[in-house]
């Protein structure tokens, strides 16, 4: 299926750097991936792994300077977003790509009503008049499960709880029926029961509206519940990519494997001491010439110090289409009982 339908979004060889006083920080290093229609792509990694920066840079949300694009292509609907001017990019952002940020407390403007903030993209991008925009805003609030929507248009953000604000953020992102919704840790700041509400809502909306979603998170539990396919990022590059079940059943990269073992289980037998990954993610002051994970890796050998591994296919399908990994080490075959379907 992935091979047949044309992807909604295709990113090829994206590179982004930040100019700092200490020199250039290479935050995104040759990142390639595609996003299919109606698909949820999970992006995981620790803080500093480059997951948010990658997604923000592809729609020009990073302030430049200090951010600077150093090559690559971002194809959305036949156009390369990296070649668009600010004005055209703004149009894309409102109308074709929606963005939901992590913190619902700070991403809404406290001095405007929800109605104002919801109607702004509708009037700007869809050219609606006040009445039409207000009607659509009510529709959107109802879509994201906010009761008594018409009255709530006049409410200010502080009158809403965290979960409700995140619903509003999603409504704003959905306002112009985007092809792609990028959600950056949208449930991290929320409590578990509220997180469960938002996850259910997004799953439902995805079926209803058929849009493609990029879901950025550090929480593998969330990924397991919502994603179809997963990108694991480290050191500003994609280190592993696989369908979600394959990734959890048969992780290849030492980083993915370690990450899966650092989290305690909620059911099943209780583990002894937790597995730890020693050290910190690197800050890359030069394009990586060696494997960025080598300092923390249990399977490091000479080649890892000399050569940054390219992504290679694990299951025989082309890189990006099936399961691929960027590692010189070959993981042993998984124990038969953990392979599901």
């Amino acid at each position: 299926m992935a091979e047949r339908a044309a992807p909604v979004l295709e990113v090829k060889g994206l590179r982004t750097i930040f100019r700092t006083r200490g020199g250039e920080v290479h935050a995104v290093n040759d990142v390639s991936f595609h996003l299919n229609r109606g698909e949820v792509l999970g992006v995981v990694g620790e803080s500093g792994s480059g997951k948010s920066v990658t997604m923000m840079s592809l729609i020009g949300l990073l302030p430049a300077p200090p951010a600077e694009n150093r090559g690559g292509e971002v194809l959305l609907g036949g156009r390369d977003l990296l070649k668009l001017d600010t004005r055209a990019l703004q149009e894309v952002r409102g109308a074709r790509v929606g963005f939901v940020f992590q913190d619902p407390m700070t991403s809404l403007n406290p001095v405007f009503t929800l109605g104002d903030q919801l109607m702004e993209p509708l009037r700007k991008h869809m050219g609606m008049d006040r009445t039409a925009a207000a009607n659509r805003a009510v529709e959107l609030l109802e879509l994201v499960g906010i009761p008594d929507a018409r009255r709530r248009l006049k409410a200010y953000p502080h009158q809403f709880s965290g979960g409700m604000r995140q619903r509003v953020m999603i409504a704003i992102a959905l306002a112009c029926d985007p092809d792609v919704l990028i959600a950056d840790e949208p449930t991290t700041a929320l409590d578990v029961t509220i997180q469960a509400q938002i996850l259910e809502l997004v799953k439902e909306l995805r079926h209803k509206l058929g849009m493609a979603i990029i879901w950025i998170t550090h929480d593998l539990g969330v990924i397991a519940g919502i994603a179809d396919r997963v990108l694991v990022m480290y050191g500003g590059q994609v280190v592993e990519q696989a369908p979600v079940r394959e990734l959890f059943a048969n992780p290849q990269h030492p980083y993915t494997r370690a990450l899966l073992r650092t989290i305690p289980a909620i059911s099943g037998p209780r583990e002894g001491r937790l597995k730890v990954i020693q050290g910190q993610p690197p800050i890359l002051m030069a394009p990586p010439a060696a494997c960025p994970f080598r300092a923390r890796c249990d399977y490091r050998h000479d080649r890892c110090d000399r050569e940054n591994p390219l992504r290679r296919a694990v299951d025989g399908r082309p890189v990006g289409q099936g399961h691929d990994v960027a590692c010189h080490w070959t993981a042993p075959a998984p124990v038969a009982e953990v392979i599901h379907a």
């Binding site: 997180q195 469960a196 539990g221 519940g225 994603a227 959890f248 909620i266």
Partner: peptide
């Protein structure tokens, strides 16, 4: 019961 059921399990098959 609700709180525990809301925890995201890092296992797509069980999820």
């Amino acid at each position: 019961e609700a709180l525990l059921s809301a925890v995201n399990e890092p296992d797509p098959v069980r999820a």
